[in-house]
Amino acid sequence: MEKITVVTGPAVPLPRANVDTDQIIPAVFLKRVTKTGFDDALFYAWRQDPDFVINRPEYAHGGVLIAGPDFGTGSSREHAVWALRDFGFSAVLSPRFGDIFRGNAGKQGLLAGQISEADAEKIWALAEATPGIPISVDLVATVATIGELSVPFVIDDYTRWRLLEGLDDIGLTLRDEARITEFEARRESWRPKTLPVK
């Protein structure tokens, strides 16, 4: 994974609450067996409306999505993160995230930062006033800056460290492989086994 320190792009306003992962990418697009090429599926139902935000020319290549509360709730589909990433989004700021979505974002290098509702509204206003205005999201300082406005965002320390260092989770865990093997040696025999089949 690439190291992330600061990401910058147009602030893309999505002032809606409860944007579930079915809206980010409908199930019909989950049939693919690849991890890329989901950009055409992002917000598929909503983008049929020519005025939907990502259809505007200034947002044609994504940027930083500024979403309402409870973004990414519902289904665990990591495809939601892949679709945002493939479209060109490098970060999402929202007052609240679905837990699984936030975890998936961290694994895939999509920066998911939590901001206050008041700050989200301020950013929406700035973005509506000047469509395409850039926002810079600084993972070192955990501050997002748009025009004259700087707002703090929250991201858990571990995810922040992994993103800053560009570390791969599986590689990190396998450094503790001896501990996993020790744990397995003391697991009780009643615990479920799928093999061999009785």
Partner: peptide, 12 residues
């Protein structure tokens, strides 16, 4: 869990 975590559990 998401697909990255599926891979993580399969591996570890």
């Amino acid at each position: 869990i998401g697909t990255s975590e599926v891979e993580h559990v399969l591996a570890t």
